[in-house]
Computed example of a mutant assay.
Amino acid sequence: MDDGRVVALHRSAEHTFSKQPHAQLRLVAGLGVEGDAHAGATVRHRSRVAQDPTQPNLRQVHLVAAELLDELVEAGFAVAPGDLGENVTTRGLDLLSLPVGTVVALGDETRIGLTGLRNPCAQIESFSPGLLERVVGRGDDGAVVRRAGVMGVVLAGGDVRVGDRVRVALPPLPHAPMERV
């Protein structure tokens, strides 16, 4: 499956809501984005560290589809790549439809194993009032629908650049839908 491109890359050494743009990022196997506050083998998200700092970090890399950002801009929100705290912004790939365990290849070297859906916190409302209800809602069946991107762990490290090709390898059947992580 050859589905998309990397359109933007971001990282922040501090625990900030939005991340700064970079033309290139280095991903480190088992840790995440080099120089990013969320990189590490164990959890780095502050609320999860407070619960149990020994938990494995299933949120090493955050990916968001540029199509979501386009939709939010059309709805009147001033949002750009990196504003939602993602490390990688893609185009041409329906990230949210992929099952747990999908391997996403960015460029020639890196591989990310998808672990689940991002569950945005209340900070998203501080960034832009009304945004939370646009990225978390309810489906026709009443189930919670999360659209704020997907999370993954770095399986194979290397450099990722804006413009790199994105390829997808689905896990063996049966596929399990992603849940919040």
Rank of each mutant, 00 (worst) to 15 (best):
D2P: 02
G4T: 02
R5N: 08
V6H: 04
V7K: 02
A8Q: 04
A8M: 08
L9G: 03
E14C: 05
E14L: 12
S18W: 12
K19Y: 09
H22G: 01
Q24K: 14
L25N: 02
R26E: 15
V28Q: 09
V28K: 02
A29V: 00
G32T: 00
V33A: 12
G35I: 01
G40N: 06
G40S: 04
G40P: 03
A41N: 00
A41C: 02
T42W: 05
V43G: 00
R46C: 11
R46V: 15
R46E: 15
S47W: 13
R48C: 05
Q51N: 03
Q51F: 07
Q51T: 11
P53D: 00
T54K: 05
T54C: 00
N57H: 02
R59I: 03
Q60N: 03
V64D: 10
A65E: 15
A65W: 15
A66Y: 07
A66M: 11
L68H: 14
D70R: 09
D70Y: 12
L72C: 09
L72Q: 08
E74S: 12
G76S: 13
F77A: 10
A78T: 14
A78C: 09
V79I: 15
V79T: 11
V79A: 08
D83M: 07
L84M: 15
G85F: 08
G85R: 03
G85N: 11
G92R: 08
S97C: 08
S97V: 12
L98H: 09
V103E: 01
V104I: 13
G107Q: 02
G107E: 03
G107P: 02
R111C: 01
I112F: 00
G113H: 00
T115V: 00
L117H: 01
A122Q: 10
Q123R: 14
Q123W: 15
I124S: 06
I124R: 03
E125P: 06
S128G: 03
P129C: 10
G130S: 04
L131M: 15
E133Y: 07
E133D: 14
R134D: 06
V136I: 14
G137I: 05
R138Y: 13
G139T: 11
D140H: 08
D141K: 03
V144H: 11
V145I: 15
V150Y: 05
G152P: 03
V153C: 05
V154T: 05
R161N: 14
V162M: 11
G163N: 06
R167I: 05
R167P: 07
L170Y: 12
P172C: 02
P172S: 07
H175K: 02
A176E: 07
P177Q: 06
E179F: 07
V181W: 09
V181I: 08
